[in-house]
Design a protein around this nucleic acid. Structure first.
Length: 422
RNA sequence: GGAGAGAUGGCCGAGUAGGUCGAAGGCGCUCGCCUGCUAAGCGAGUAUACUGGGAAACCGGUAUCGAGGGUUCGAAUCCCUCUCUCUCCGCCA
């Protein structure tokens, strides 16, 4: 959420910068509401001031019959206040509706562009393996080794659900542990294990609601949602809190499954593990001082990259353009792994700075020192990494001519010493 | 699921026959004095949001005692609904 006062005072500039996201932005509705709200507020509050003053006078009059005319007068004033406040409530809801659906302003360094095609490659790491055979896509490798069962996954639930078996299940679990250990032991994150379903306030706090409800699985009977990413519960840990400046930056990591309806992606990535309704992810979340958040974003990105470096999987980092960054973000780096089976790079991590956009929605603040006033923290997060897609990357990059898959050395302790699958 | 208790400021904790309560007191914290050493004492200060005015310092208004509604000239205090926490019973991994 943007600061209403900031929008009010920089209307044109805000509109211009939001347009770079490629959406049509019209802030006139906001403007009308905002103005109307202040008019109503002024009127209501001055009447309340009057009422308070007269009520105080009434309280001093011992013989209440002497106060009858004032009581009658205030009865009428109260009625008018009630009417004004009813209007005000409606306007404020409308205003809130605008504020909650206006996306964040892209950072000045975010490249301007219309779509994915305009994203900017920042760097490449690793060397793409030269294979002496035609690489297979991971779903063929997985089925060949009998470690991924798409058919039975679909039987259990439906399309976009997968059953892992044997070394496949073990690989997924090994990766989760490997990533968590790396981030907690070497990168100084505190491990969290949050609820996998959250309430509406939490979803609103990080920006999934109210705009993207159709992407979420909602429970029947209670107003809870399955989390689409650990970002939601982990960022909301400090919702409504005032953090100590000396505690910043706060770094959390969490493994959770993620649930997404994938509405609007029908027919996209229908095979394999790339796009599932349920997938595992290890997430990194930071709460930082505003003046440090962009440095912290680089560090967070490096922490995520480290996973792939240790697993020796080639990847590249791209900076998303204004037309491709998410609703709540000001700046985002994606890490994309090389997938030989598909001959392309695919996203495996997305690392973003949200500045105070989520902190304002969720009211997460800190105080620089005793005398200074409260400020919103900046929140950041990134995948560290998407686990299912890491399995995909390992299967496709480490596949051998005979259909077996070499397990990266760094992962072997987590696989009971196993060196290859098959 | 059943029964009961509770929710007040950074923390603890007063305050229920409605008005002088943004809210006693204590702790903590900040500044000053004293003292002079990692103490005690004394004095002052110490919420947030919105909003009006002002270049600013700041001054004024309104709201907030779990949340939302109601009664009333006026509610932390009365009524209703909801949420959460705790205790006991039941059920259960």
């Amino acid at each position: 959420m943007l600061d209403a006062k900031y929008i009010r005072e920089n209307l044109e500039a805000v509109e211009q910068r939001l347009k770079t996201r490629g959406e049509t932005v019209d802030l006139s509705g906001f403007r009308l509401c905002d103005t109307r709200r202040r008019e109503l507020l002024l009127e209501s509050e001055s009447l309340k001031a009057l009422r308070n003053k007269v009520s105080d006078e009434i309280s001093r009059i011992k013989d209440k019959s002497q106060a009858q005319d004032r009581i009658t007068e205030m009865r009428d004033v109260s009625r008018r206040i009630k009417a004004l406040d009813d209007d005000l409530k409606g306007i404020e809801e409308e205003l809130q509706g605008y504020l909650l659906t206006i996306p964040n302003i892209p950072h000045a360094t975010t490249p301007v562009g219309a779509s994915e095609a305009d994203n900017v490659e920042v760097r490449k790491w690793g060397t793409i393996p030269e294979l002496s055979f035609i690489p297979k896509p991971h779903w063929e490798i997985g089925e060949g080794l009998d470690i991924l069962d798409f058919e039975r996954g679909a039987r259990l639930t439906g399309a976009r659900f997968t059953l892992y078996r044997g070394a496949g299940a073990r690989l997924e679990r090994a990766l989760i542990n490997f990533m968590l250990d790396l981030h907690t032991e070497r990168h100084n994150y505190v491990e969290m294990l949050p609820p996998f379903m959250v309430n509406r306030e939490s979803m609103t706090g990080t920006g999934q609601l109210p705009k993207f409800e159709e992407d979420l699985f909602r429970l029947d009977g209670v107003d809870y949602f399955l989390i689409p990413t650990a970002e939601v519960p982990v960022t909301n840990i400090h919702r409504g809190e005032i953090l100590k400046a000396s505690d910043l930056p706060i770094r959390y990591t969490a493994y959770t499954p993620c649930f997404r309806k994938e509405a609007g992606s029908y027919g996209k990535d229908t095979r394999g593990l790339i796009r599932q309704h349920q997938f595992n992810k290890v997430e990194l979340v930071k709460f930082t001082r505003p003046d440090r958040s962009y440095q912290e974003l680089e560090l967070l990105l490096a922490d995520a990259e480290k996973v792939l470096q240790l697993l020796e999987i080639p990847y590249r980092v791209v900076e998303l353009c204004t037309g491709d960054i998410g609703f709540s973000a000001t700046k985002t780096y994606d890490i994309e792994v090389w997938l030989p089976g598909q001959g392309t790079y695919r996203e495996i991590s997305s690392c973003s700075n949200f500045e105070d956009f989520q902190a304002r929605r969720a009211s997460i603040r800190f105080r620089e020192n005793e005398k200074s006033k409260l400020e919103f923290v900046h929140t950041l997060n990134g995948s560290g990494l998407a686990v299912g897609r890491t399995v995909v990357a390992i299967l496709e990059n480490n596949q051998q001519a005979d259909g077996t898959v070499i397990i990266p050395e760094a992962l072997r302790p987590y696989m009971g010493g196993m060196e290859k699958i098959g």
